[in-house]
Design a protein around this nucleic acid. Structure first.
Length: 491
RNA sequence: GGGUUGGUAGCUCAAUGGUAGAGCAGCGCCCUUUUAAGGCGUUGGUUGUGGGUUCGAGUCCCACCCAACCCA
């Protein structure tokens, strides 16, 4: 069934839509444009309510989200992202034509109002309408005024309905917007500058992930959507920038889950002459700044649907910093005395599934993820990880098996890695060749050439913004912090 | 990819294998300070799709689609 047939069917079967279209035509017949144009306001509904003063002449506009009909007088709510304001309409105060138009309106329509502010006898800040203007007729009914949208499919596929009818959803996205804005401000205040590097790359590098492929017709070449901006940001360090960041989308052609969306937002920051510990300080300061500015403090409460607190994250400084190996010894004191076979046996004993194709360091990493990462709610910097896990970081001077990195874990998830970046071009080449292995992954020779020209020692961090927002807002699914998460087509 | 749960009116939800229902929204009437307004009345259904079992299927069986959760 194609979309046109679909529409026809729906129309012929649904009297609700037919009635709204009749009202649309009735408005036109009365000489009123149902899809009006510009309307100057003195403030948004929520702004007028927040800065309410009686006896002011105001103009505002919004969507009608409630209608309480008292016969010759009406109360409606006008709403938008800023909030809501009540409007009082009375046949005595309004022109007869206006009341005719008003009778043809529905919940969902956009309306402009001019009038004087007053407080009703129940204490509700309101506007007494002196004139109204129809701004847009809504041809479909909105979701339930009380329950809002409950169906997750509608929430995600038709986010506009979720935003209009579920206040909690809107608030999460407003917090996300504030977090992103505040990150930019925080970094700029400290002398970092925002740069833009290619999202379409001929060699996708900077991470180990499956890229999306595309094709450039004029150049006759395949391109890939970036999986990370890292290798370009490092080229900028070679070029003389010392404090830079990029806050934008990455794309990975992998599974979709509660914690994964194929496109996700990443902050990467590089700071010449800094090391991973200085970067850890920066992240710690930044996340605390965000929590205090946007979440009202360093204790973040996660609540369930009933409003009960299910988890409290304490962001108080200083954050714990522990070496990777010490954490594993905390789980099993003899872990590093075991042979690889004994480690596998230990996993079996403790109900941790490992496959035969996993290398020894992957077995250890799996134990780390299951028994440490997933159980760690308060911030923990995991430092000095094994170098196999991190091919782009600097080797530790005292122990060549390790790299100078941190992995920040909060809320049971990896929120941010930070490195002392590898700037030795020969070691970098060796690591990348080792990483490519037998796979088809190409070596980025230009990036290696850039390193050979000389890259200053630098600290670098990445922060998954979606997961950071999940942690700070207490939602359980990445789909609840991405406005338009990817879904299969409905049919 | 595997498992579990779900998909019923515009929305939120009911319905032992036996007449598909409620609240809200809508429509009609009453009501000039209500706020989930209220009162009286009333319309609205291809029960996700396609098969099957049965005298009879929203309900049982099979396949498929979509979603949520868990696992890999």
């Amino acid at each position: 069934m194609d979309a046109a047939t679909d529409r026809m069917e729906e129309k012929s079967h649904n009297e609700l839509l037919a009635i709204r279209r009749q009202k649309l035509e009735a408005l036109r017949a009365a000489g009123i444009d149902p899809f009006g144009s510009g309307f100057e306001t003195t403030g948004a509904p929520g702004e007028i309510r927040a800065a309410f003063a009686e006896g002011q002449k105001v103009r505002t506009a919004g969507r009608i989200t409630a209608h309480r009909n008292m016969g010759k007088s009406h109360f409606i709510d006008l709403s938008d992202h800023s909030g809501r304001i009540q409007v009082y309409l009375n046949a005595k105060e309004l022109a007869p034509e206006a009341m005719v138009a008003f009778d043809l309106l529905d919940i969902g329509d956009f309306l402009g109002v001019e009038g004087e502010t007053f407080v009703t006898k129940t204490g509700e800040p309101s506007i007494k309408a002196a004139s109204i203007r129809v701004l847009s007729k809504s041809l479909r009914p909105l979701p339930d005024k009380w329950h809002g949208v409950q169906d997750t499919e509608i929430k995600y596929r038709q986010r506009y309905l979720d935003l209009v009818s579920n206040r909690e959803s809107l608030e999460v996205f407003q917090k996300r917007i504030a977090i992103v804005r505040e990150i930019r401000r925080f970094l700029e205040d400290r002398g970092f500058i925002e740069v833009e590097t290619p999202m379409m790359q001929s060699i996708p590098g900077g991470a180990a992930a499956q890229p999306f492929e595309t094709h450039h017709n004029a150049l006759g070449m395949d391109l890939y959507l970036r999986i990370a901006p890292e290798l370009y940001l490092k080229r900028l360090l070679v070029g003389g920038f010392t404090k830079i960041f990029e806050l934008n989308r990455n794309f990975r052609n992998e599974g979709i889950s509660r914690r994964h969306n194929p496109e996700f937002t990443m902050l990467e920051t590089y700071w010449a002459y800094a090391d991973f510990e200085k970067m850890a300080d920066l992240v710690e300061e930044m996340v605390c700044h965000l929590a205090e500015k946007i979440c009202g403090g360093l204790r973040i409460e996660h609540k369930n649907a009933e409003g009960n607190v299910t988890r409290t994250i304490n962001l108080s400084r200083p954050w714990r910093r522990t070496r990777y190996e010490d954490l594993l010894r905390g789980v099993e004191p003899k872990w590093y005395d075991f042979s690889p076979e004994e480690r596998r046996a230990w996993c079996q004993e403790h109900g941790i599934e490992v496959t035969h194709c996993q290398a020894d360091f992957e077995v250890t990493q799996h134990v780390f993820e299951k028994l440490i990462e997933e159980k760690t709610m308060d911030p923990l910097f995991v430092t000095h990880c094994p170098k196999e896990l991190v091919p782009l970081a600097k080797q530790n001077a005292a122990d060549p098996r390790l790299v100078d990195v941190y992995e920040l874990v909060i809320n049971g998830q990896e929120i941010s890695p930070g490195y002392s970046e590898l700037n030795d071009p020969d070691i970098q080449r060796e690591r990348l060749e080792h990483q490519s292995g037998g796979e088809t992954q190409k070596l980025d020779d230009d990036f290696l050439a850039a390193l050979e020209y000389g890259m200053p020692p630098a600290g670098g961090i990445g922060i998954g913004i979606d997961r950071l927002v999940m942690m700070l807002t207490g939602v359980e699914s990445i789909r609840d912090v991405i406005l338009f998460p990817h879904m299969r087509p409905r049919h």
